[in-house]
Amino acid sequence: MTVSVASNLWYRASPMQSQELAKLAQEFRITIIKMLTQAKSGHPGGSLSAIDLITALFFSEMKGAEPSHMNDPHRDRFILSKGHAVPALYAILAKKGFISPDELKTLRQTGSRLQGHPDRVRLPIVEASTGSLGQGLSVAQGMAMGLQGTPARVFCMLGDGEIQEGQIWEAALSASKYQLSNLCAILDANNGQIDGPVDQVMPLEPLADKWKAFGWHVIEIDGHNWDQILKAYQEARTLQTQGSKKPVFIIARTVKGKGVSFMENNIAWHGAVPTPEQAEQAIAELSRGMNHG
């Protein structure tokens, strides 16, 4: 069954604008720090670099990203392929009402739905179980294939270190073959991975040229600039409605640990959590950031 895209846009929550989104993302950063500090483990660096991009998706771009549409087959899907950044997603899901704020305290505890990496059996709204890197884009692509001809779109967030996996490039080939303009991949390019900077561990550049050569429409942005983020998402959406046959790849240049001075661009914070004192300092910084916009 083919349903016109335009006629179904009504259930996209009224999109938030830059200033509102910025405030919300800072709130999520505080939630992330609190969750990780309480859990005493997790990955702050990549959660903080990705949060602006995911916030804009859920509060400005995606259709049906509400608990009331959870079983709507035409809802847009979001897959977090870089599964270790899942605290960022949990913070948003709690704000949206998919999970309760109290449940955030159970992160990584025995029996919790909030596993250390996304688990679609325990918590279906995460859409795909990820955490072994390089797999989410294939799953997102399968969804996009299954949803072709419906208004639903599929978004997939990748890490830059993650795309060193070979399966990513298999997916890059086939998404192009199947003309999946309803698929939009977002690269959280924070140039950090466990063993060092991405450009030293295994260089990826020229990144845009590579994805263009694989047949994707590539957009490059600053992943913390709200106007650029919203414009990129709008461009992806417009392309699809205008009949583009290309999947979209957004290269978002980001800062690992963004928003917390002592975490920014410091690879040590990939998988380390703050002490209570450090957390207090981080939250104080983020709170100031909120007040000053």
Partner: peptide, 20 residues
Amino acid sequence: MGISEANMIGVASGLAFTGK
């Protein structure tokens, strides 16, 4: 899917999640 078995497995899972 071409000679890309890992991708084929992931794609199949995604298709299954949409009811196929």
